[in-house]
Every structure is written in structure tokens, then in C-alpha cells.
Amino acid sequence: MLTDGVSADHAPVDDGLAGDVDPLVIAGRAFASRLIVGTGGAPSLDVLARVLRASGTGLTTVAMRRVDPDGGGSVLDAVRAAGVEILPNTAGCRTAGEALLTARLAREALGTSWVKLEVVHDDHTLLPDPVELLDAARLLVDDGFVVLPYTNDDPVLARRLEQVGCAAVMPLGSPIGSGLGIRNPHNIAMIVERASVPVVLDAGIGTASDAAQAMELGCAAVLVASAVTRAADPERMAVAMRHAVLAGRCARLAGRIPRRWHAQASSPVDGLLGRP
């Protein structure tokens, strides 16, 4: 029976299938939750703390350019107090050089070599700049980082990122903060099919069904920020996302029926008692 209690110790939510632990593994590290939460857009630290708890997440991104790691009492403290790991990101960077600088500052301040790599072209579309992104990924991998790149839904670029040594690929569903869901499920499925690193759907999720769809497409995890932090009730949306990720993952592992053009009765029509 599915439980939906909030587990403050981030233990895997019991899906009722005894002995079936299904952790997310990135770069050799296991996470109980397949939901990664972004902190951007939270209206207050109190809401952020409640969101992190309700989501059951084990990993949270923080924009290092917008948060001073030494600034007390802020976002980083709230994340730490929730017992969640911090994944610094390079949000705001436009060039590979900036990304490397930001990643190094984060590594020094936080003591982690994991980084979510974001290199966008402009403030308005916030779409990844594929050329700069690939250059930045190479630079960071060579500098010893564990790189999780935010990318577009191009299967070729995803492959290239994996080839240069990224630990995962994080294709967008649609532009950051747009809430448009997964615009090109076919491409996401192709990326999943050919990747040998985890695929984390990152950006554009608007509501729970989008997160479930991502998992059904075979993504290993999803990253959600605005859909939760900017919802009218962020804590409740965090709960929704938690269930959605679990539901989508279970459905994926359960092996769905194929789509058919016509009907197929669920009970046999032969041999029914009393049939005239």
C-alpha cells in the first residue's frame, strides 16, 4: 500500500513491493529520491524548508552566482538544515570561462566537485548555448568536476556531452519556468534509449503529470524548480511531485501495454456462462 507520509530521513518511499529498492545512481552515488528540487523562486526560506521536507528530495540545486556561500542564515543554511545535499549550479553563465570560474568558486566554498552546468545564450529564452556548453563540459571534466549538464532535447548533443565525460545528461522538457511540460517526448525517449548515463529531465515541468510523463519516458530522475516554488501552495505541489515521480517510475518498471488503434476486450468473449 502506498504511504504518503513525509519521511524526514529521506528513506525510500515504500511502494509496497517488498525488497525492491530502486535508488538513483549518479557517478557512483546513490540517492533514495528521484526528485531533485531547485531552490530558485521560493518566496521565503520557511516555504523552502517545507518544500524540501515535503518533496523527500536528497539533492537540491543552488545558483552560486546569486548566493554568497558565506552569507549566513540564507538559502544554503535552509538546505543544510533540511539535511539535503547541495548541488551548486552555474546559472547565469554565458561562456565556458565563466562556468569554469563559477564552478571553481563553488567547489572551494562548498567542498564538492559536483556541479550542475548551465550555460545559456540569453536572459530571455534561457536556452542552453550548445557550443559553449560542450566546451564548458570538456573544461570542467578535465578540471576534475562531476558534471551534470543542463542541455536541450537534441539527442546528438546529449551523446556528445556523455562522450566528453559528463556524469549525467539533463535535457529540458521546455524553457525554464515556462511550465509547458515535455514539448518533444520523442526526442527525450531517443536520448534515454542511447544514453549510458542517467537522464534527468530538467526545466519546463509545470505540474505533476509532466513529472510522471518524464519518468514514464525512461528518465532516471526529474529536476523541478518553478513548478513547485512558484505554485500557489508550494509545499502541496512538492508532495504532488514526489508522488508523480514515484508513479511514473513504477509505471515504467511495470511495463505498460502497447497502444492499439482499436479496442481489445479485457475479458474473453468465449466460454461465458449464460451467454445466449
Partner: peptide, 18 residues
């Protein structure tokens, strides 16, 4: 901040524990 609890007037999430 370390022990955020429900504040008066804020929406509370009702979760059934089964």
C-alpha cells in the same frame, strides 16, 4: 529556522498515514 512548524493562517498539508 531549524524547526519550521505550521504558522497560524498558513495552509496545512493534510497527509493520510496508512
Amino acid at each position: 529556522p531549524a524547526a519550521p512548524g505550521p504558522t497560524p493562517g498558513s495552509p496545512t498539508v493534510t497527509e493520510s498515514k496508512s
